[in-house]
Amino acid sequence: MSEDLKPTYVEKGQEFNRDMRYIPDRVTKDGRVPERGPVNGKLWPVEPGRYRLIAAKACPWATRAIIVRQLLGLEDVISLGTPGPTHDKRSWTFDLDPDGRDPVLGIERLQEAYFERYPDYPRGITVPAIVDVPTGQVVTNDFPWITHDLFFEWQDHHRDGAPDLWPEALREEMEQVMERVFTEVNNGVYRCGFAGSQESYDAAYDRLWKAMDWLEDRLADRRYLMGDTITEADVRLFTTLARFDAVYHGHFKCNRNKLTEMPNLWGYARDLHSIPAFGENTDFDQIKAHYYVVHSDINPSGIIPAGPDPAVWLEPHGRG
């Protein structure tokens, strides 16, 4: 989903509500009607080398897609473009690349891929986004279905031994867990950070910490959210936990305590971070630069804090 480039902030006295309207197209095997999920847009065929995933490592929603792509071994099948951590109101930009252009698409702003397909695209230019390389047009930015379909629709191209991110026997419970993680934690930190009144902040804060305590308890007797193996649920939770102490604790006022003060969640987060797909795609400098610079209403000085020390993430997790 990423940070919506339209104003994220709410009017005084209002509660934050995220705009969940995305381009509903999906990439499926042979362009088939998928067995799971909505079909409200165009169906595009799986085709190795055709698509480029645009995903900023600063953004939690986009980093999910980067992690799943690497876990499944799709690096040589779907290319990756990574915008820089800061942007203006128009679009994410490719300022990390030579000459400030994506080397495959040749564009300076992700906005160009959106406008190539929708000249009057009315909503935020968000990441993650899948772009059709031959036409330069955005395909979809519907973030939960992007990772879902990387697993279900691209299975012919997964690496040998790729993890089963959606175990069939656990899917019903997993959907419930992921829904609670999304509404109460992934989106809950934003509900705190962008609250427009004391009352809405207090309610958001209580909801967040109720869910955090539930997760702490859940992880007391299991290694991962669904048991002994990694699933999509872990990917979805991890990107929020990775940003918690560096950003959400102070910047978003989620400050009852730090992640490092919750033994089960902290050990779990370090356990995941030790896996290359998670740790290699967690860039604390980019994360902090994004939130503390882009959210100028919350941090008008634009000063990026020096801490916390990322070395703590390398300490033994003790979850084996």
Rank of each mutant, 00 (worst) to 15 (best):
D234L: 08
V235P: 01
V235I: 15
R236D: 01
L237P: 01
F238G: 05
T240V: 10
T240Y: 00
L241W: 03
L241Y: 01
A242Q: 12
A242Y: 03
A242C: 15
F244R: 04
F244H: 15
D245G: 12
A246K: 00
Y248W: 12
H249G: 07
H249M: 05
G250T: 15
G250P: 09
F252Q: 02
F252C: 08
K253R: 15
C254W: 04
N255K: 07
N255A: 15
N255M: 11
R256C: 08
L259P: 11
E261K: 13
M262C: 12
M262A: 13
N264D: 13
L265E: 02
L265V: 08
G267I: 10
A269P: 06
R270E: 06
R270V: 04
D271I: 06
D271S: 11
S274H: 12
I275Q: 03
P276R: 10
P276E: 03
P276I: 03
A277E: 11
G279C: 08
E280R: 12
N281Q: 04
T282P: 07
T282M: 15
T282W: 10
D283I: 09
D283M: 07
D283E: 04
D283W: 10
D283H: 10
F284H: 11
D285Q: 12
Q286A: 13
Q286D: 13
I287R: 00
I287F: 09
I287L: 09
A289V: 03
A289H: 15
H290Q: 07
H290Y: 09
Y291T: 00
Y291K: 01
Y292A: 01
V293T: 15
V293W: 08
V293H: 13
V294Y: 15
H295N: 05
H295L: 09
S296Q: 13
S296K: 14
D297S: 13
D297C: 08
D297K: 14
I298H: 06
I298G: 03
